[in-house]
Design a protein around this nucleic acid. Structure first.
Lengths: 210, 210
DNA sequence: ACTTTGAGTGTACGCACGTTCACTGAATCG
DNA sequence: CGATTCAGTGAACGTGCGTACACTCAAAGT
């Protein structure tokens, strides 16, 4: 920690410790809820003394909010990247299912944190996650509103179907999170399930009236 | 507690204390996760001394499992009653939305517990809830399989759509749980949303091919 | 070259926790 | 009616917790 050859500037080092705290909390959160991990556990895992924690966060609650932010910025980046992929336009459903499973697999820890704390966390953390997810629903609604069968729908209906998609995304993410490692068969199963669910919803689009 | 006019038989009294413990835990769980309430808190709320807790449950984990059981038996009873209502056959969607909101409102605490601990609870509690929900999916699949457009579907497809329904039921239940009291407008909004979602899915039924 | 700053240290505190143990006294049993 | 059972008591323990406070000592600022 202290024997780096290049002298670490003060703020570089601080940033690194901050990341260590976030990583420690994220790892501990995989096996128990965020609310039941202690400041001292986090500090121990991050390789610092308990009191040093306060140099970075005023409280565990603030650490939780920082984790929410980190998780969603990861997710947003992935979706932005996925939107550049041309195959999204050809087959939006299969692409979405792929992206979902891949994204969750890639940063399982963040998804697990969000899935868990969305309902089980402290008031503040729960509100933050809820807010981020609401943003997501609105963003998706904008995309959906441009699809062929939907452009004539009312705003409310589009929001509703957007919620339906996000909701199922969350549920599927939960499933992937709980999936044991090294079971590609289960993964494919979840992906196929997600695909079917989305197709079923989409099939309903063209016969929908108010 | 001790001045009841009629002498309480020993097991009656024990049962009453057990219920007091369950009720205490359920109430405490409304404002924080089950994993972060302590044996001593529960005992205090139930009006007994901490050590007396062990006369009823070996551990907090067993208490949690008992709460899962209690919650689902409540839910099952409600659904069984609802199935007797003739209007279910006329308009299964509106009836389902009504039943959902009413059931959750009636025993909000149990639903809140399940919604929360389904993802945030201890390993054992989570597994128990997951198992109960899986049972639900299978039961619903049997009902769905008899519907007009569905009778020709593969078993897998029926299971999938059943999961879709249960999943959305859980999500809607979560929303009702988080709903502040005395806001019938919000309640109607959620009910309407649930109705639309189900209709959308059902509309997709008749154009579905494997 | 000096002072200042501030990330990380180490000790110490009071508190709530789970669990142990020996107990009490009323309901139940023979 | 005496003996037994057992739900609930109350004191005591060891532990981990959050946080306070005074500290060190190298990088950053002058």
């Amino acid at each position: 920690m202290t024997e780096s050859v290049q002298a670490a500037s003060r703020q570089e080092q601080k940033g690194r410790t901050r990341q260590a705290i976030l990583a420690a909390a994220l790892e501990l959160t995989q096996h128990q809820g965020f609310a039941q991990i202690s400041l001292r556990q986090v500090a121990r895992h991050a390789g610092i003394v308990p009191t040093a924690f306060y140099r970075h966060f005023d409280s565990m609650d603030e650490l939780g909010l920082a984790l929410v932010e980190q998780s969603f910025s990861t997710l947003r980046r992935m979706i932005r990247e996925a939107q550049r992929d041309p195959k999204v336009f050809d087959n939006i459903i299969d692409a979405a299912a792929d992206v979902l499973v891949e994204a969750v697999k890639h940063s399982k820890a963040h998804f697990a944190f969000v899935a868990r704390e969305r309902v089980g966390g402290s008031e503040a953390v729960r509100r933050a996650i809820r807010h981020e997810l609401d943003l997501f629903v609105s963003e998706l609604a904008v995309v959906l509103a441009r699809l062929p069968n939907i452009e004539t729908w009312s705003t409310e209906d589009v929001q509703m179907v957007s919620r339906l998609f996000v909701r199922n995304m969350v549920s599927n993410a939960e499933e992937v999170v709980e999936m044991p490692d090294g079971r590609p068969d289960l993964e494919e199963r979840i992906k196929e399930g997600a695909r079917r669910q989305m197709r079923l919803i989409v099939v309903g689009f063209k016969d929908w009236r108010s």
